[in-house]
Design a protein around this nucleic acid. Sequence first.
DNA 1: TCTCACGTAACTTACCATGTTGCGTGATGG
DNA 2: CCATCACGCAACATGGTAAGTTACGTGAGA
Lengths: 157, 157
Amino acid sequence: MVSYVRRDSRLSGVLHVLLHMAQKDGPVTSDVLAKALDTNPVVIRRVMAGLRDQGYVHSEKGHGGGWTLACDLSKVTLRDIYAALGSPSLLAIGNRTDTPGCLVEASVNAALDKSFRSAEELLLARLGEVTLAALHADVHTRHAARGHSPRKAKTNG
Amino acid sequence: MVSYVRRDSRLSGVLHVLLHMAQKDGPVTSDVLAKALDTNPVVIRRVMAGLRDQGYVHSEKGHGGGWTLACDLSKVTLRDIYAALGSPSLLAIGNRTDTPGCLVEASVNAALDKSFRSAEELLLARLGEVTLAALHADVHTRHAARGHSPRKAKTNG
DNA sequence: TCTCACGTAACTTACCATGTTGCGTGATGG
DNA sequence: CCATCACGCAACATGGTAAGTTACGTGAGA
């Protein structure tokens, strides 16, 4: 009855991947993406599976294959991506029990749940305000601020 | 470099304990509290250590010993208790890396952090609005709604 | 047909709140 | 003074999950 939850960075990772894909013309292989994120290709495929199933990206096998964007970046928000990952738990703290047999605990649960829910709602709302296009534009802005030419970006890391 | 975090229910547990103590006149032993929370006395002592160090509760050894409240319930909020527990992580999702060597990741981090921070701030603010006294009153309200006499409460669970 | 790249299952690892055991300390009471 | 109680604390065990890894299968291109 103990719910575990590791600090989940899948959303962060997926966004990183999507933005890298947005900077490339052709398909990008899991291997290349894995190197960019300093991780394993299988991890990339695993985490991208949900996005593929929901049509945000497309994958192709064989020579010249890899991952390509299959959506309008200006119409997809971080909240959409979060949902595509299966809407994992947002909060790291929670109630001891969902079905308290004790009035005291029921009272505690009610008070905490109220706060928890409002925080979750706010977070989801904020994620819903940010489009992938906005993020992509931000990357270019940061590049310019670094004194580089916006195109032909070096995309290590 | 992977930050782990189990669904933390210490706040929930501590609040449960404090409210039970508020309903008793004398000291309450870790053993009694442990039975109420269906856990181990050592766990109670461990989680209460922070509260004791910060003066919210008092502990006494020997015969007739146990835990007693040492604060004004109307002046202590859930946020105070949360802080006394060491301000554990609130969010279950986070960035892959805190120090990105990649502009793309920096951009992702910035966007997510903004949302994360606002959610955390809201949650803390909400917790800061609820006093232990309010929770205690809520327990009595729930008791009355159950058709019991407010005093002499049965405090199982 | 060989290589590439994804698809997927199975296993391992890392991490940490919680559970548990054991021993020490101080206070009460006989 | 000694037995008992109750906290203090260190040390170890447990359990669950994201991420890492290995292995094998499938389909597409050269």
